[in-house]
C-alpha cells in the first residue's frame, strides 16, 4: 500500500481552479518530486495535505488514515512535516527554539506541567539536545542561539528543514528548498536530502524548479500543469514525455 495517496483532489479560489482532480501515490521510502510550471498548484497541494486549504472534493490518505478528517494541528502527529516556499519561521524565538517547535507534536506537556516546571525540566533538556543534534547535522550549530531573523536566506531555509526534521517525520514535504541558493549550495542540499532519507528512512515529497536537483535525486516524478497531473513515472520516463516537454517549452517556465 502506498504511504500517501492523493485522489481526485479539487481546489478552487473564486474563479481560479488551483487543483483539478489531482491524483497520485507515493511509496514509503521514495523521494518523489512534484514539478510543474508556476501556478500549477504544487503549493496548493501541500496546503491541502497540511489541512490549511479545504478541497471541494477528493481524498488524501496517509498510511491508511483519512487526512481530511483531521484538524490542521493534528497533521504533524500523523508523521508529516513540511517546509514553506516562503519562510515561516518564528522570529521571536532563537534558532534552536524554532527547531524545538518542530518537535511539538511528538512531545507532551500542557499548561499545568509547563507552569509547574519541575517534571518538565529533564525532558526539555533532552529535547534541546535533540534539536542541537539536528542543527549540528545541517551545519547550523553556530547560529543556534541567534534569533531566527536577520540571517542569510540559505541559512533560514536550512533552519526550516531542521525544524521539519525535529518532528522525526515519516513524510517530509519540501517546498522549493533550493530556491535562492547558490549552485554549490544546491548540490550540497541534494546530498543532504538523500542522506537524511537514507539515515532516517524518510519518504520525501519534493517540490522544486531546479531540474538538476530533481532529476539527480528523485526516483519518482509527478508533473502538474493547471492543477492536473500530466505525467507520472521515473525521471527518465517523465523527461521523454511529449506532454511534459510541451508544458515546459510552451509554459515558458
Amino acid at each position: 500500500m502506498a504511504l500517501l495517496e492523493v485522489d481526485d483532489v479539487g481546489v478552487r479560489f473564486g474563479g481560479v481552479v488551483a487543483l483539478d482532480g489531482l491524483g497520485f501515490a507515493i511509496e514509503e521510502g521514495e523521494i518523489c518530486a512534484l514539478i510543474g510550471p508556476n501556478g500549477a498548484g504544487k503549493t496548493t497541494l501541500f496546503n491541502v495535505i497540511s489541512r490549511l486549504y479545504e478541497p471541494s472534493h477528493g481524498s488524501v490518505t496517509f498510511a491508511g488514515e483519512d487526512l481530511l478528517a483531521l484538524a490542521p494541528h493534528e497533521i504533524a502527529g500523523t508523521g508529516i512535516a513540511r517546509t514553506f516556499q516562503n519562510l515561516a519561521l518564528v522570529p521571536g524565538l532563537s534558532v534552536v527554539d524554532n527547531v524545538m517547535i518542530g518537535a511539538h507534536a511528538r512531545t507532551s506537556g500542557g499548561f499545568l506541567a509547563g507552569a509547574l516546571g519541575i517534571p518538565v525540566r529533564t525532558r526539555e533538556r533532552a529535547l534541546r539536545a535533540d534539536a542541537m543534534e539536528v542543527l549540528d547535522r545541517l551545519g547550523l550549530a553556530p547560529v543556534a542561539a541567534h534569533p531566527a531573523v536577520g540571517l542569510p536566506y540559505g541559512t533560514l531555509k536550512r533552519i526550516e528543514l531542521a525544524r521539519a526534521l525535529a518532528a522525526r517525520p515519516r513524510l517530509l514535504m519540501l517546498d522549493e528548498p533550493a530556491s535562492g541558493l547558490t549552485h554549490e549550495e544546491v548540490g550540497e542540499l541534494g546530498a543532504t536530502v538523500v542522506g537524511l532519507r537514507d539515515d532516517f528512512g524518510l519518504t520525501v515529497l519534493l517540490v522544486e524548479h531546479h531540474m538538476g536537483m530533481v532529476m539527480g535525486i528523485s526516483e519518482h516524478v509527478v508533473v502538474m500543469e493547471f492543477g492536473q497531473k500530466i505525467a507520472d513515472g521515473t525521471p527518465e520516463e517523465v523527461s521523454r514525455d511529449p506532454k511534459v516537454i510541451q508544458a515546459y517549452l510552451g509554459g515558458g517556465a
Binding site: P72, I75, A76, A88, I101, A105, R163
Partner: peptide, 8 residues
C-alpha cells in the same frame, strides 16, 4: 500557520 503545522 507555522505553529499549527508544527502541531500546536
Amino acid at each position: 500557520t507555522a505553529a499549527e503545522v508544527a502541531g500546536v
